[in-house]
Design a protein around this nucleic acid. Structure first.
Lengths: 127, 127, 127, 127
DNA sequence: GTGGTCTAGACCACC
DNA sequence: GTGGTCTAGACCACG
């Protein structure tokens, strides 16, 4: 798996890593039981501090996506967390509202927003 | 106009204010020339520091949504910016990706995401 | 609130801090809405690294005991997390088994274990 | 004797083994002179590294619970240590404090904790 | 080699 | 002042 990091962006590096891992899980590029690079190795590869990667892994572990085995490594969990669907719905709607607001402010309409959604789908799947 | 502030959320308060104002503009709840509360009044109403509101107003002024007339108050600008910049496109795609990731992780598909988008549209318009 | 830290023990410092805070909440020494020392201040007081305190605060926040308000500080949450009582029961029984095992191995009996429990109660309350 | 190992838990595997053996001794499931599986056999059975089991055995030997007879195997010692040391007392109190803290946080009181202790006693004896 | 913990110091965003 | 993030380096426990 390849990572793209923008160190000077406003999004913290550890969150960029978290997002890319969850996206990979979502589209099936990473599956249950898959082993991740050690946080040190990934850190070296991305030329960032090991603690930064570790923080991403730690958060994903408390969120239920990863599990670590001492001395062995970090893995995608066998049992991924099941969302409370109400919660998930709320989060999705919040994102959808932001998306639409942005669109309207830019003079776009609902269908334009759907188009962006389609572009994003392609990016996630083939990026 | 009513504001909802979550002081302990991860989103900075001044950005919460910015977002609610731009959203109101996007859906037409706030229109050109409308007068806003003074930053002190709004701060008092929301029980937060006046500087925080001022920062939100200042940023919105820089972005071209508001204009301040000394001694008279702060208003929605007559000529709203309609920047459909590459930057905005990127923001929209980032949101779209998060939306899709959430959907996929919850076992939903692209069409479900579009449905949520439609729901959000109704909420924004009629809420 | 006063803290006692054993830096060279096998229990990580950040866990010692976590335990002392949760105990203080449990016995009412810390109540909803109370403000904690800033992680830097506490770190200085305990002569440890600020990150170590911050890690304790962070974990307690994800566990639902604390909430942080940017630029203002860290507080005991108004709504403390309600346990799933089945989970809590399991955790308590696991601890109880360890306690009894230790007692039996030391030649003590059930009543001795209860005595230790009473001692612990006094320590938590008056310590 | 059957072992239950959680490789991804926060408790090191060798300590999980140690605890289960000492617990079995405490409740009489394992008695003086009983022979244990060789560390290789147990490792194979549990699908873990032989060194891990060996470490558990070694530590238990150091603590005085086991003795190794070269070429014959590993056995529960005839003369078990009965250390009711201050150290053990401290461990028990630490467990007791955790138990009480959990109880209080869940809205239970001291007597409830004692009840859980009684339940645990039954489980250990009859489980 | 892997994860777990800790340090000392730095810069930034926020209130 | 507060929390949020990151770095570079270190030592230990584990398998």
């Amino acid at each position: 798996m390849r990572f793209l990091i923008y160190p000077s962006g406003e999004v913290p590096i550890y969150r960029q890593i978290m997002r890319q891992i969850t996206e990979a899980i979502a589209v099936g590029k990473l599956g249950r039981g898959d082993k991740l690079l050690s946080h040190r190795e990934l850190a070296e590869q991305l030329v960032i501090a090991p603690l930064t990667v570790k923080k991403a892994y730690d958060e994903l572990e408390t969120l239920g996506y990863l599990e670590t085995q001492r001395g062995r490594g970090t893995f995608i969990r066998d049992k991924l967390p099941r969302f409370n669907s109400a919660d998930q719905r709320e989060q999705m709607k919040a994102l959808a509202r932001k998306l639409l607001t942005l669109a309207y402010l830019g003079g776009l309409n609902f269908n334009d927003a759907v188009k962006v959604l389609k572009e994003a789908e392609r990016e996630i799947a083939h990026g």
